[in-house]
């Protein structure tokens, strides 16, 4: 429950925390692209070591396990399926299952990619508060406004959704307790009673969501919110020297990697 209340964000004051959210989103996007370009254990190992290093210096290393846990099942599943069902040079024959060399390599590669993708994207959400994250996304999507993409509205919706997660969690807890007090048995195995209990939870939750949406829209409109109007932000995002340095190094990394990969450096 506390996980949901606090979200993924771990407050802190590291280099990564102080970066502009746009820098982090761009850098993560470039590194994600890089993950798909890597070949061989040395390259994967180096990027993996780099990610672990960043976790350590950002003071979010305790959260690495929390970040990876939900995806771990998928990773293991991927490795096993690929290893057993890819045709190739058989290393181990277990009847219908044949562990192949190609399969093992492919499974490990895909598993490694998944791990890297999860840990990279978590690095952004662990060190960026939800509000700064939506601001960053809004700024990055701004150019799309010209072709009619509702960037500000989307960011406002994300902010409202984030703002209401704890509220609805509290509401859920209250409704659950009220139902328990009237004898609801949420552990019942009887499907008919289970359906009854679920509706008894969901209807008040929806009614309260509509009531809150109504109240919020009235409050916003009475304070002059107009869809599509230009608004200023309380905290203006500004690139600092550390942002420029990082973006430049990422650019250099890209150029060097591309040149190396496509043989321009020989």
């Amino acid at each position: 429950m506390d996980d949901i209340l606090l979200g993924q964000y771990v407050p802190g004051d590291s280099f990564l925390h102080r970066l502009d959210p746009r820098t982090k989103i761009i850098t993560a996007a470039v590194l994600v692209w890089l993950v798909f370009q890597l070949k061989g254990p040395v390259e994967y190992g180096s990027l993996g070591a780099f990610v672990v290093f960043v976790y350590l210096v950002s003071g979010v290393s305790q959260s690495i396990w929390k970040a990876l846990k939900p995806g771990l099942f998928l990773v293991i599943f991927t490795v096993i399926l690929n290893a057993l069902f890819t045709p190739g040079e058989v290393l181990l024959n277990m009847g219908i299952f044949k562990l192949s060399r190609e399969g093992l390599i492919q499974g490990l590669t895909m598993g490694g990619r998944l791990l890297l993708l999860i840990s990279l994207s978590s690095l952004v959400t662990l060190t960026t508060s939800p509000v700064r994250m939506t601001e960053g996304l809004e700024q990055l999507m701004k150019p799309l406004k010209k072709i009619g993409f509702p960037a500000s509205e989307l960011a406002m919706m994300m902010n409202i959704a984030l703002r209401f997660i704890p509220t609805f969690w509290e509401e859920w807890d209250k409704i659950r307790k009220a139902q328990l007090s009237r004898g609801a048995d949420f552990e019942s195995w009887n499907p008919a009673s289970r359906i009854k209990y679920v509706t008894a939870m969901l209807i008040p939750l929806f009614v309260s969501a509509f009531r809150k949406a109504d109240e919020l829209s009235t409050a916003m409109e009475s304070r002059g919110y107009v869809v599509g109007a230009t608004r200023t932000s309380l905290h203006v995002l500004r690139f600092n020297s550390r942002d420029y340095v990082l973006l430049l190094s990422i650019f250099v990394l890209l150029v060097v990697f591309g040149a190396q990969r496509y043989g321009l450096l020989k």
Binding site: K174, K177, Q179, S181, M201, L202, P204
Partner: peptide, 12 residues
């Protein structure tokens, strides 16, 4: 019997 605050919010 427990009557919560604003019990009407829990009607279904």
């Amino acid at each position: 019997g427990l009557v919560f605050q604003y019990p009407e919010h829990q009607l279904f």
